[in-house]
């Protein structure tokens, strides 16, 4: 495959940045999108240029590290996959592909396609945990009965890998799908009840403080989420906050 790539290059947070065109030949349809970028970087290095900086780690779709806004969609045109699992067979020979970083005021660019997503970490620190003593006297898991339905829903919410695609794709740069999932995974379980009030209040407060936008229920986040996190989690978070505030 022969491709034209329009890639966002930005040398540091203070640089203005812009799209740069690259030609890449000999791309196999079996390559992952990141392997294609590896190939491009080899070409750039061989030509004496500076490789394109992009985030990646596990390359098997579970770490939440890879990002990229590809041809106008978070994690590209495929559904239910992260960029590392997106394959070049989704594109055609001769295609022009736009590759941009995830955009949001709360996700400032560090370099090229790498953005700072530590705002998600700070939201987690604000309440995305349960306080239990794990120093050798952990309770038996079966001593707390949990319904299959609640366990399934909590697990579904917990599959959020915090990649930030929801924010990137949202026209309001809202982080509510992420925070909704993180609130839900505890709200559905008895272990999460003790700190439920503080958790939702503190996480929503931190989300607002980080400068994420307001959800308008377009549902784009749910469609683009590589883990299929449901919009129901946002509704649950709204209910949790209402409950915690009255």
């Amino acid at each position: 495959m022969k491709l034209t790539l329009k890639i966002w290059r930005q040398n540091g947070a203070n640089d203005k940045g812009g799209l740069v065109d690259y030609k890449l030949d000999g791309v196999s349809p079996d390559m992952s999108f990141l392997e294609m970028l590896d190939m491009l970087n080899e070409q750039i290095i061989n030509e004496g240029g500076e490789p394109v900086a992009f985030d990646h780690d596990c390359r098997e779709g579970i770490c939440g590290m890879c990002s990229l806004y590809i041809n106008g969609e978070a994690h590209g045109p495929d559904r239910g996959v992260t960029t590392c699992q997106l394959h070049m067979r989704m594109f055609k020979d001769g295609d022009t592909i736009f590759i941009e970083p995830f955009r949001a005021s709360a996700f400032p660019v560090i370099k090229d396609l790498i953005v700072d997503r530590t705002s998600f970490d700070r939201i987690q620190h604000a309440g995305g945990f349960i306080s239990v003593n794990t120093s050798g006297n952990t309770q038996d898991a079966n001593s707390l009965p949990i319904s299959k339905h609640a366990a399934d829903e909590a697990m579904d919410a917990a599959t959020c890998i915090g990649c930030g695609a929801c924010v990137a794709t949202c026209k309001n740069s809202s982080a509510m799908l992420f925070v909704g999932a993180k609130v839900s995974q505890y709200a559905l379980l008895p272990q999460g009840q003790v700190e439920a009030t503080d958790r939702v209040k503190n996480m929503v407060a931190q989300m607002d403080l980080e400068g994420f936008g307001n959800c308008t229920n377009t549902g784009a986040c749910e469609v683009e989420c590589p883990k299929g996190i449901s919009l129901d989690n946002i509704a649950r978070m709204n209910r949790e906050l209402m409950k915690a505030s009255v």
């Binding site: 041809n71 106008g72 736009f98 955009r103 400032p108 026209k171 994420f212 936008g213 784009a220």
Partner: peptide, 20 residues
Amino acid sequence: RNKKANGIKYAKNNGAANSS
């Protein structure tokens, strides 16, 4: 407020792919 939260606009954004 939402515009402020947006940051830089995408050069290419395919909104129709995921929302009405």
